[in-house]
Amino acid sequence: MFVLPAAAIFIVFLWLPIAKGFVYSLYHVDFVHGNTFVGWDNYRTVLSDRDLLVAVRNTLYFVGLCLVIGFWVPIFFALAVSELRRFQGFVRASAYLPNVVPLVVLYGLWRWFYDPVGPINAALQALGLDSVAFMTDPDWSMISIVLMETWQQFGSAMLIYLAAVLSIPKDWYEAAEIDGAGIWARIRHITLPSIRNLVLLMLVMQLIATSQSYQSQLAMLDGGPMKATLTYALLIVKYATTKLEIGAASALGVLMFLVLALLAVIRNRLQDKGAGA
């Protein structure tokens, strides 16, 4: 049976940890002395943790910022690039290029970019503006991270939208134009409705992805300054690595699972509607 090895691996390395997450959330996990059952104690611990509220708020803020700063950008550029008559391949490739920059390079590079005496502040100064403490100002730190991630990731989203925009039959535009539809009307009544399902799908996928974000926040700022970039997922990681409370970390994971499972179901509905077409 060819499925068996795969099934075994899925059980041991996916289903087992997922199930263990629920189990551990009810235990005090101790690698040396063994686990003890503590009931709902872990949940009580994390729910009474002041950082939880901070983390939830930061996560919502991050998700919102990603929408405001990052979500419309690929759609706009997909429309614009689809109208390019030359150099389209070059523009596509360069928009996607940041995607292949390794994460650690991204962090190293942008730390320097955001430096108080780095290139961005130099440019601001040249324009006669005040310099910005991108990393150390709690008001700016999350925005800085979103800008960095948008730089890296928007290209792949743009290419997905672009493929959808280019697959719209050209005759539709031709017909609409003959009927007297202006350019804006063509975009509004042909292009946007055609990619509507895809936009919804990408929206839900982005919500799922951004609400789990922690790596950049950890690598760039370690959750600081003043917990301004402490996201929910980062809180999970911190519980496990610095506080060594595996049970509490698992409880946080379970709580998050309950919220995100809902989004995942919505995503599936959208995909079944054939959103990729």
């Binding site: 499925v3 997922i18 496990a240 699972f257 179901v265």
Partner: peptide, 26 residues
């Protein structure tokens, strides 16, 4: 059922079980 068993895992956000996963490996 087998296909569902495999594909169901797509719905479970990886961050929610990252710590249990680590303990499991351990």
């Amino acid at each position: 059922a087998v296909t569902t068993f495999f594909l169901m895992t797509l719905f479970i956000p990886p961050t929610t079980y990252i710590i249990p996963n680590f303990v499991n490996i351990k």
